[in-house]
Nucleic acid binder design. Structure first.
Lengths: 217, 217
DNA sequence: ATTTCTTATCTGTGATCACAGAATGCGTCA
DNA sequence: TGACGCATTCTGTGATCACAGATAAGAAAT
């Protein structure tokens, strides 16, 4: 693995973990210093993240972490419904017992995180659950697109959600999905995932309106 | 616009026009020489195209134009149906008279290309028609994803389709779509686009099986 | 005190160089 | 004649330097 791959992974993780403020400008030399490399691999990593939609660039300016906006979230939701719904339905026809066991364990860990009001752990487990499910669809082209969507949606999760937003209802959709998968009912699995995304998406929009700091853009 | 943007656009156009053979390795210094620049902007452009899914990279090796494969095309089709179907339906609710006029002109040009058995012109116009339609959906996130899909599908079009594959039926789906848009019927527009993609997709798979040169991978 | 113009600094882009791993060609041996 | 091994060449990666456009800071004028 090359150095720019490691740098890319590091910055990508920082974005997903919300370690950069939405709207923040990322400077090549600063990141290079903090990662203890030359500017070169950082330059490549940032350009790659821009191409993946995780950052936005204007010509001859520093790249920016996209600001949260109602329009952005509203545009994202239907695409997520279409792609993640498709993946869930395909997974329903292909997932095996081992896969269902993995997902069941994930749901248990999400219950635990909800009980402990640990929203960081919940978000991590939630992401694991969804991506494991979509991987089971066995379509690399589809999986790649979905990962790009999550990268774009990541900052919204970590910057808007707090412990107060965790409700037991969140995990009920995952349970519905799991039941559908056990029945081999792809259509029901899709419906459960779509309900999950809709519920969470509406919640994010509400949080955005409540939070004056992010109401801009 | 920076130099690497121009280089990116140039190579991207070469890929879409089929000026690179599927499976071909692209070397930084060769492209730099033919584009009369230093290797630097070429390096950046190639990395960007890899991130966009237009090229594939293995670590420490030259990037490759993806080889055509049945699995690749089969994975692409359901994603295209989901995303382009969504965009067509959204466009049905938002497109205005000027947009419909633009699309109508495009259909006329496709008829002309079909009559002249000019498959290059047909493919260009076809791409214009679809992207114009999807732009009318007014969802930048969605449009971005669809453009990535077309970039991945491009080589399959230009390398498998010949004049002998042009049939008047191809344009009938576009006409159906146009009629649906005029009625403001998004559902019907989606159905027409999906039928178009399915028909053309099946045709590509058949051509792939017929062509021994591309049956590999 | 505020605005504006000028200057100094910052920052991304492009070029050149050095290096390491991969690929290729050639010679040797069975 | 064919296969193996070595050496040369090729090729991507990473670092350093030069430059131009943008940004920010400071000084002068109203």
């Amino acid at each position: 693995m090359t150095l720019q791959d490691r740098v890319h992974a590091a910055i990508r993780a920082d974005i997903l973990a919300g370690r950069f403020r939405p709207g923040q400008r990322l400077k090549i030399r600063d990141l290079a210093a903090s990662l203890d490399t030359s500017p070169m691999p950082v330059r490549a990593a940032l350009q790659r993240l821009v191409a993946e939609g995780a950052l936005e660039a204007e010509a001859l300016r520093s790249v920016r972490v996209p600001a949260l906006s109602r329009a952005g979230l509203e545009n994202l939701l239907p695409v997520r419904l279409a792609l993640e719904g498709l993946a869930a339905e395909a997974a329903g026809a292909r997932i095996d017992a081992a896969g269902i066991a993995t997902l069941t364990a994930g749901v248990a860990r999400m219950d635990q995180a909800l009980g402990a009001h640990d929203f960081a752990a919940y978000l991590t487990e939630n992401s694991q659950f969804h991506l494991t499910l979509y991987r089971a669809a066995g379509n690399p082209v589809l999986l790649r697109m979905i990962e790009q969507l999550w990268l774009q949606a990541g900052p919204a999760f970590t910057w808007l959600v707090t412990s107060d937003d965790l409700s037991p209802r969140l995990n009920s959709f995952h349970r519905d999905c799991l039941a559908a998968l056990a029945d081999g009912d792809g259509r029901a699995a899709r419906a459960a995932i779509e309900a999950d995304l809709r519920y969470f998406g509406q919640h994010l929009l509400m949080l955005l309106d409540l939070d004056p700091a992010h109401r801009n853009a």
